[in-house]
Amino acid sequence: MLILTCPYCGVKAEETELSPGGEAHLKRIGPKGTAEEFEAYLFARKNIKGVHFERWRHAYGCNKWFLAARDTHTMQVYGTYKAQTAHATDEIVANARQARAEWVPDWPQASEAVVA
């Protein structure tokens, strides 16, 4: 059973105090989206074995949604961060890269940072 530290209240919460919300960093597709874009938004999930970004709500606590970077295979937690964050922090990226050297973030800014 996982423990994740809520970045809003600092509580080290166990899984029963949290409710899960699936993959993080999805971009909402509204009425203007094409059928393909909308299908991907609704259904296409990365389902990764390895570094995974996911949503959690501190449901039995401060009630805030937060994001966690977790390894779905080793269960290592690379970090938790606030939901109002476009991407995982550099520190989290570094943690993940240290554990999984082959992993590269799939958002441009971070890739640049890693490469540089």
Binding site: R57, W65, A83
Partner: peptide, 13 residues
Amino acid sequence: HGHMEDWLQCEWW
């Protein structure tokens, strides 16, 4: 309530 807070916190914060 959770659904509302989800959109407020994660999409239109």
